[in-house]
Design a binder for these strands. Structure first.
Lengths: 222, 222
DNA sequence: CCCGCGGTGTTGACAGTGTCTACGTACCTG
DNA sequence: CAGGTACGTAGACACTGTCAACACCGCGGG
């Protein structure tokens, strides 16, 4: 047998990402995933007991990519600050993490939507739960650092982290599905992110250079 | 004409609210609504061209009740302040409105969930759009008042309102579907609301007395 | 050898969904 | 009284997720 292609299980996960990217949440159906992966409509059930568990696997992977993206943006912003002979304030780091969260949501809206839609995902899936917990813990650590400077000192870091997460998540959902132009008159998400960070943290968002591999150098095609 | 009960159209809307309250978003199906209303599965389509448009009507009504609830809580908090010989700061009014928003979400989770789920609602429905716009405008007015005191002066009030709305909405979604205990270790939503207001507005949330008619005696028009 | 056997995939069911169409009725108006 | 219109029903259609039955295929043990 040729080991050239990935296993069917991986192909199913990739097919799910492609379907949600092109057809949206509505079209994210078990049979559509099977069609995209080139297998029969019953084949996915040999690898996942149910559709929700397949989507949970996609979501857990999304959590892990989110954590990596935030870490990467933090390192990137820190490098900029170091080049100017300084270091990033803990509040500034929180601001960078918040922007990275929203950017991640905008870069992969389908996976992001699946991840936080409890009616599509099996929230009791252990892999999903631990990946989500790790993502939350990343934020708690940033909050703990910030509290050392006196900001929101005395509050439980988990509570502060939950509030900040809710705020940033609300911004992401507004940018994704809220119809920004209809409600605000423009669609400058970056401005709303900066304003959100200013309101919650009282801090300007530090610059983060665009990553070279963010989008393959393909111009929009016709 | 109208003699015995409400018209079929009203019965359908009420049935939709009951179904989502008891069966959740998953069970909110056209045929389930029809069954609950005691009509055949095709009858709803005589009043609404599609399921999404029926849910849009439910959502638009939800928007109007939300506006009324926030106005009511504002008046209530203002009365408390007046009894103590003072008046509410504009930032304090924003805090009261934010708490009212979350409380509304918790009081009617089903309707709230439907209202902000674009895949269930027809967002182009004119009634839905104008009701949603009115709700947003209520917030913009509160923000404009607060800006007169110097807070976030110079920012477009629509932008500030959008950010605050996203924050409060994120808190509501976290409280509803985020599994607060799993992520934070307790389920004290009031504390998270207060903390959110403290972070965004730098202000303690003023007290709002519980309304006596919070769950009104479900009176039917007869 | 071949025999079973577990992993994998296919096919065909089944109940349930939203929506469309055909049909019936009851009521109001000209 | 005739006719049209609003409303409700029943049946179909193409979907969906899930399950059961069947087929293939690489193996290890009699």
């Amino acid at each position: 047998m040729s080991d050239g292609g990935p296993g069917t299980r991986e192909r199913l996960l990739q097919a799910a990402r492609e379907v949600v990217a092109t057809e949206g949440l509505e079209g994210l159906t078990l049979r559509a995933i099977a069609r995209r992966a080139g297998v029969s409509h019953g084949a996915p059930l040999r690898h996942f007991p149910t559709l929700a568990s397949l989507l949970s696997a996609v979501a857990a992977d999304g959590f892990r990519r989110l954590v990596a993206r935030i870490d990467d943006d933090l390192a990137r912003a820190e490098a900029v600050a170091a080049a100017e002979g300084g270091r990033l304030d803990p509040l500034a780091r929180l601001a960078v993490a918040g922007r990275a969260y929203v950017r991640f949501a905008l870069a992969d809206p389908g996976v992001f939507a699946v991840t936080f839609r409890p009616e599509r995902v099996d929230v009791t899936d252990p892999d999903y739960a631990t990946a989500g917990y790790a993502s939350f813990q990343q934020l708690v650590d940033l909050v703990t650092d910030a509290q050392a400077t006196g900001w929101m000192a005395g509050e439980r870091p988990e509570d502060v982290a939950a509030v900040l997460w809710a705020h940033v998540h609300g911004i992401a959902e507004l940018a994704l599905h809220g119809g920004l132009p209809a409600v605000v008159g423009h669609d400058d998400t970056e401005r709303l992110i900066a304003l959100s960070n200013l309101v919650t943290l009282g801090v300007e968002t530090p610059p983060v250079p665009d990553r070279p591999t963010d989008r393959p150098p393909r111009e929009e095609q016709r």
